[in-house]
Write a protein that binds this DNA or RNA. Structure first.
Lengths: 193, 193
DNA sequence: GTCTATATCTGGATAGAC
DNA sequence: GTCTATCCAGATATAGAC
């Protein structure tokens, strides 16, 4: 992995930047974080940092991808509890939810770098979740009357909506609503409740 | 309503501005709309316009309130179909959904003028919806096993999440998912389907 | 009370030297 | 690959004309 040619150092630098950005945004929030600040955190000038990402928006999308990567590794076992674990994890880093919410809004513009990210994010997310639900149906732990695609899409939208609202009112108990809705779809109380 | 004293003209001006802003944002989208453009649309300078609202963000929140006002008048009969009518209406003006989504993200900051707006929006929205559901339960058209508060909160989050995603991928059929989820909660197909 | 002009500040983008 | 310098847009503050 320690490459000699060109690129080796650049890629490493890029990773450093992403990790620093992830940390800074998690701590201080998205709105409070300027490119200049992120640059300072890794000892670069503003334009030195932008050299690696092209623009602020592309940098932020890269941060989102990096977070996905880390989350995927940390969440473990797929299953209904994984969604709850993910939400619970996110609750620890409101700054990153803030980032996601802003990028989600910005992604409405097809030219925005977050546009493609979001399309893939939703497509992969629903496909994976629906797959899981289908598995539960064959195992007999989810009624075969529910449509896995519908339920997967609905739960992603529900989780997004709850997170946006939670940022505004942190007293909202996201887990509770997710579990109650799960029960409504599955006909069973949420596993482990 | 034609007032003589002070304020009369100013209030009128304000309404003019809001209507022009509503139209411009609906047509060209939120991202594509600058304060200077809105000012031009009503024949004012940028600072002349800001005189009435204090800041760009407060102007946009005022636009949101104005839209609520208009929507409330147009939606008519409360009932499960009203939610669908609202969503269908919104589909005609993606620019305003874009505005809402951006304000929703910005509202995470307690100092942002959209913060209070959103808190009231959600509180009133869920309370009103829950009230409606309770009425249906006494009328026997909704099982008494569902918790009106939970269902109301879930449906608002669901609608928000679907709208955000729809902006990114307009092929998403929001009505369909809303109706399927309704059926899941009520045990009945959606009224009129 | 209504509105303009102007000045200033911040954040982000870009060009070109090294 | 990184810096400095410059530039530009948008937001905000203020003075004052009408």
């Amino acid at each position: 992995m320690v490459k000699r040619g060109p690129y080796g150092k650049g890629i490493e630098r890029r990773e450093q930047i992403l990790e620093a950005a992830l940390r800074t945004i998690a701590e201080r929030g998205f709105l409070a974080t300027s490119v200049a600040e992120l640059a300072e955190a890794v000892g670069l000038s503003q334009s030195g940092l932008l050299h690696y990402f092209g623009s602020k928006e592309e940098l932020f999308v890269a941060v989102l991808r990096k977070r996905d990567e880390i989350d995927m590794a940390a969440i473990g076992e797929p299953g209904p509890e994984a969604l709850i674990r993910l939400i619970r994890r996110n609750t620890q880093v409101p700054g990153l939810i803030e980032l996601f919410t802003h990028m989600q809004a910005a992604a409405a513009d097809p030219r925005h770098p977050a546009h493609d990210y979001m399309r893939v994010h939703y497509e992969r997310g629903t496909a994976g979740f629906a797959e899981l639900l289908r598995g539960m149906q064959t195992a007999g732990t989810l009624p075969s009357t529910v449509d896995p695609e519908v339920m997967a899409t609905a739960f992603m939208a529900l989780a997004d909506g709850l997170q946006s609202r939670w940022l505004i009112d942190p007293s909202l108990d996201m887990e509770y609503y997710l579990q109650r809705c799960w029960a409504q779809f599955s006909g069973e109380p949420f596993p482990g409740t």
